[in-house]
Design a protein around this nucleic acid. Sequence first.
DNA 1: CAGACTTTGCTAAATATTGCACAAAGTGTC
DNA 2: GACACTTTGTGCAATATTTAGCAAAGTCTG
Lengths: 211, 211
Amino acid sequence: MRIAEPTVERLIKYHRLLISMKQGNSSVVSSRQIGDMLGIKASQVRKDLSYFGEIGKPGVGYHVERLCEHIEQILSSPKVWSVALVGVGNLGMALMGHSVFQSYKFEVKALFDVDPEKVGQNIMNIHCWHIDDIARVMKENDIEVVILAVPAVEAQTCIDKAISSNTLKGVLSFTQAPVILPKGVLFYAVDVFVELEKLLFFLKEKERNIS
Amino acid sequence: MRIAEPTVERLIKYHRLLISMKQGNSSVVSSRQIGDMLGIKASQVRKDLSYFGEIGKPGVGYHVERLCEHIEQILSSPKVWSVALVGVGNLGMALMGHSVFQSYKFEVKALFDVDPEKVGQNIMNIHCWHIDDIARVMKENDIEVVILAVPAVEAQTCIDKAISSNTLKGVLSFTQAPVILPKGVLFYAVDVFVELEKLLFFLKEKERNIS
DNA sequence: CAGACTTTGCTAAATATTGCACAAAGTGTC
DNA sequence: GACACTTTGTGCAATATTTAGCAAAGTCTG
């Protein structure tokens, strides 16, 4: 059974919320409460949660810990993914420092850059290689996922080198350049520019509709 | 006429692409070419572009410069938005350094943080205030948009202070915490964690379906 | 333990979004 | 200028996603 992307996205958010609720005082939570906290309709929450069998109790709600484990199981990986971070500039460093990067689901095995100040160094205990070594290092470390945080103009070149490792399975890109990938390689992009433009666009539209 | 969010998102991407094509050699481009470069179906491209009147020529395609201006007009703002960046940590600095922030559509008028090393300083020529001053500074500078780049635990507190300025109209959040806003304030979030989790989830699913 | 609530799981309807297919329009060649 | 292409714009069908509504199940109160 295939799960739709928006559903997965919400499951991730429920999971995150439940983790923070585990330290709270109530051991039970209703779809309404979850929905209100995340800005999602309660019926949507129920539909998402009932996707994998009945887990809530009518008249009561969902048991926080149980539900959390339940979602954890759905989202869980059978293995720890090996990841490479390409581009150790401001953004790359910000990512590395981010708590997200202390996950049990993946491990950043190698860094890549072109800056001679960084290449050869250990940064936050991870070795930084020259981007030209990426195919070899990826093969040696079985790296299947690349996080791309380089300037737009270099994105495609870097990706092409990563592709030549033949181990690449997924890319999370932070650059705004469109990149061409062999089909079969999953691609997700975090596009700051697009989000900001969208915000400004709909702000404009809203003001226009008022006046 | 209301434009759907996915459409706006694609328009932004077309615009970005067209800008880079303006320096290229061909002055004309087809919906097929645009689609291939961005991973979008040609029919979708045509539908998006014809939303605002006929602008292409059958048998030829779209005139790059003309199309670019056309989209620019759709996306254009009647004013330059005043923006505050809340949180001048790694991520905030990365954003400031990003080329996205040299836009003619908005201007970062003020920075906010709690770190005594930063408060009172000018960072990249913009003054950094203590977060407690945000309501006053926002009012004085007519700041309507806040970019939130603080640790999750501080997100709500910061936003509450920004709300009390009464000038807040939109938020672009980089924190993973859900925040409660008065309705009427637009909210967009860039959620690194969610994107990464989605990537890993669908990678897992894909491998599971193969084996 | 009856009656008033609450809340789930699910089905069906409503919306939103994408993709197809084709006529009409433009280009190029001989 | 006839014929073979290419490519747009668009109506309609197909998919995807969200929302509403409700019976059934569980809780609480007196």
